[in-house]
């Protein structure tokens, strides 16, 4: 991994970094990946290829239900709002 890889990841994650932070992060990621890499060489039993407990979606009927969310509290949390809508910068 190099500084330009850190820059690319930071761009994807929408985080700005100073040059010092980039260098520190490069060092940290090298050390963390050095540790987690040990799983690369693990030989797995055939059973591990299929999850022990199968994940499945849990659906409910698509009908409106009352929730006790406070609309007032929710809209108050928007940093910018107008007429009960979230206000954001132009996307396109």
């Amino acid at each position: 991994m190099e500084i330009k890889d850190i820059e690319k990841l930071a761009e994807l994650a929408k985080i700005e970094l100073t040059d010092g932070e980039k260098a520190k992060l490069l060092k940290d990621l090298d050390s963390i990946l050095g540790y987690v890499k040990q799983i690369e060489v693990v030989d797995l039993p055939a059973q591990a290829e299929v999850p022990e407990y199968e994940n499945r979606n849990v659906w409910r009927e698509d009908t409106p239900e009352l929730r006790d969310f406070s609309v007032d509290l929710i809209t108050k949390q928007f940093p910018g709002s107008q007429d009960g809508f979230v206000k954001v910068k132009k996307i396109m």
């Binding site: 890889d5 700005e16 940290d28 963390i32 990946l33």
Partner: peptide
């Protein structure tokens, strides 16, 4: 612009360990 709001907010709001894990996860 929107992207700029994301970046400025997240950079000011997240501490070092949080950023480290977000970037590691992105990787």
């Amino acid at each position: 612009n929107v992207s700029d709001v994301y970046k400025k907010t997240r950079s000011a709001g997240f501490g070092e360990e949080t950023r480290r894990r977000i970037i590691l996860g992105t990787f």
